[in-house]
Design a protein around this nucleic acid. Structure first.
Lengths: 211, 211
DNA sequence: GCGCATCCTGACCGTATGGTCAAATTCAGA
DNA sequence: TCTGAATTTGACCATACGGTCAGGATGCGC
């Protein structure tokens, strides 16, 4: 009745190892890119011998694929907010908040995703064509409904979505540049808050959803 | 009096060779990242033997550095428009147009720049700290003046600039994603035009520079 | 035509990388 | 305590990469 020790079953330990490796891999892939990352570096960051990585993930590419997929999941979750809102000011505002928070808490993931897409999405092209396409069209419909209801200006939903993605992810992907322009210091709580406010204000007023 | 042959002096030929190599390098670095790019690939794309590359550029890093610097120059040139304008609607509008055009005509360069910054700007950190910092502060002053003159709302100039960069460069850096969401086709002339219009409309109204 | 500097390139080298493997270790279940 | 499956790991391998170099080709100035 008590085959579980203090903390872990066999499966749990396996999942923990995978999680540890994936976290290290995300960092290294973000910092060096797929080509610049080495299994040795990831192993060192995870505090494991290199051969152990290949026990859990047979190839570098399979490890990378898993990292990218995990990021994509986080992306999609944050997007649910969009639907639960009943108007553009609330929905898009909450979406901006959520994506800014991801950029702040999960910058490495954002960079890996950006890198993957920039290089032509060699690994997750199928996701772009299926899940992302579906999601985008769904949200575009919501936006079109808002426009039809007169709750915002007549803006092309696609370009609005691109702007939302671009603006929020910029704070993660170009975080280093922003930090440099901030006298070398990471954005403070207040500065992050100001960033969110600025982005929301400009976009929501820009599409005629407020005022 | 006619030491120049049909087309080229010694120096001119050298410059042409360097240009050819730099063009190939930009493409390969954009597609594969610094780590994923190989001198052999660049050589093949330029139609030259690998050893020839090392004659013009001693190391991979020196070649990469040159590519990044060239992109930065194009960036800065486009920014002059900002100053020549006498108000935010005109100045920022023209800046958006210019940067969108660069994203369209020079996507590889934009990707290389994004990749460089995302990886912590190992090669052009000094540019960020000097030239880009100066440029940014100069433009922020212009924006503050416009605000003081009541020609636009009171927006933090930094976050406005980040939004301009993010939005315009997104069309280059995430061009593949945009293409996929456009049923696999590159944006047409009309779609590019619509993109520019959307971006300008949202931002200029968002900051209270028009209407 | 000659001499010299520039330019070009095939062959080569040391290193680092992704990946393999077989032997050692751990550990749940009987 | 015993057994077998899961896990861990140091040593190893083939390959690909950045970079070198010596020798050959080219073309300008005289």
């Amino acid at each position: 009745m008590a085959p579980t020790r203090r903390s872990s079953s066999k499966k749990e330990r396996r999942q923990e190892s995978e999680k540890l490796i994936l976290a290290a891999a995300e960092k290294v892939f973000a910092e060096a890119g797929f080509g610049g990352a080495t299994m040795q570096l990831i192993a060192d960051m995870a505090g494991l011998p290199k051969a152990n990585l290949h026990y859990y993930f047979p190839t570098k590419e399979s490890l990378y694929r898993q990292v990218v997929q995990n990021i994509f999941q986080i992306w999609l979750q944050a997007a649910d907010i969009f639907d639960q809102a009943d108007g553009p000011a609330e929905g898009i505002g909450a979406y901006i908040d959520a994506k800014m928070e991801i950029s702040r808490r999960h910058p490495a993931g954002s960079k890996v995703w950006a890198s993957e897409v920039m290089h032509g999405a060699p690994v997750i092209q199928d996701y772009l064509e299926t899940t992302l396409t579906d999601w985008t069209e769904g949200r575009a419909d919501v936006i079109r409904r808002w426009i039809a209801e007169g709750r915002m200006d007549d803006i092309d939903p696609r370009h609005l979505l691109y702007m939302l993605w671009a603006t929020t992810q910029h704070y993660a992907d170009f975080g280093h540049q922003i930090e440099t322009l901030n006298h070398g210091a990471p954005l403070s709580d207040d500065q992050w808050s100001a960033a969110k406010t600025s982005v929301k204000r400009i976009i929501l007023r820009g599409i005629g959803a407020v005022q």
